[in-house]
Every structure is written in structure tokens, then in C-alpha cells.
Simulated assay, not measured.
Amino acid sequence: MSKTFTAKEVGEHKDEQNGLYIIVDSGVYDVTNFLDEHPGGAKILKRVAGKNATKQFWKYHGKNVLEKYGSKLKVGELAETAKL
């Protein structure tokens, strides 16, 4: 079963020591060990670590990328929050 994260919890994972987590749609992904493999370079992933990277992700990637790597990198889901 996957873990549920709040946006605040994801925000605590913004460096290599604590892990680099990103949010894409409602999924939470640990990209710490993907830095060297990322075709765009590690710098881009470090810039969005701890944040919602949905907009940036879909700007440069197709659905096939998430299908290929998502299952290996996904660590959980983003908790739903009440919208006021």
C-alpha cells in the first residue's frame, strides 16, 4: 500500500540528504536515485524537489515517460486538502 503525503511533508524532501521528492498530478515520486539518469540533468530535478512539478513535467514529457518510470519512482499519493 502506498503512503499518503501532505504537501508540507513532500516539501521536507528537497535535498539529497532527506531525499528528493516531487509531485506530479496526485502522485509523489522519489527522484533521488534518478538524478544521474535524468536526460535533462540533475539540476532541473533539484530545482523542483519538494514541490509540485506537474506543470513542468507535462510541459516536457508525454504520458509514456510516467508509464515507463513512474512505478519505479512512486512512493505515494498526495493527500487531498480542502479547498476554501
Rank of each mutant, 00 (worst) to 15 (best):
M1G: 11
M1Y: 09
S2Q: 09
K3W: 10
T4F: 10
T4E: 14
T6R: 09
K8C: 04
K8V: 12
E9M: 06
E9I: 10
E9A: 10
G11I: 11
G11W: 08
G11C: 12
H13E: 12
H13F: 13
K14F: 11
D15A: 11
D15R: 12
E16F: 11
E16V: 15
G19E: 11
L20R: 10
L20E: 08
I22E: 04
I23L: 04
D25H: 08
S26T: 10
S26W: 04
S26F: 01
G27Q: 09
V28D: 04
D30E: 06
V31S: 05
V31L: 15
V31F: 06
V31W: 13
T32L: 02
T32C: 02
N33S: 13
N33P: 01
N33R: 12
N33I: 06
L35M: 11
L35V: 12
D36F: 04
D36Y: 04
H38N: 08
P39Y: 07
G40Y: 07
G40T: 09
G41S: 03
G41C: 05
A42E: 14
K43D: 13
I44D: 00
I44V: 15
L45I: 14
K46W: 03
K46Y: 00
R47F: 03
R47H: 06
V48Q: 02
V48E: 02
A49Y: 04
G50Y: 03
G50A: 06
K51S: 03
K51M: 08
N52W: 01
N52V: 02
T54M: 00
K55R: 09
K55P: 02
F57H: 05
W58S: 02
W58C: 00
K59I: 00
K59L: 03
Y60T: 07
H61Q: 07
G62T: 10
K63T: 07
V65H: 02
L66K: 13
E67K: 15
E67Q: 15
E67M: 13
K68Y: 01
K68N: 09
Y69C: 05
G70S: 10
G70V: 11
G70Q: 10
K72P: 00
K72Q: 12
K72L: 12
K74L: 00
K74E: 00
V75L: 04
V75H: 02
G76N: 07
G76I: 09
E77C: 01
E77P: 00
E77M: 05
L78A: 04
A79T: 07
A79Y: 05
A79G: 08
A79I: 08
T81S: 15
T81V: 14
A82L: 13
L84R: 12
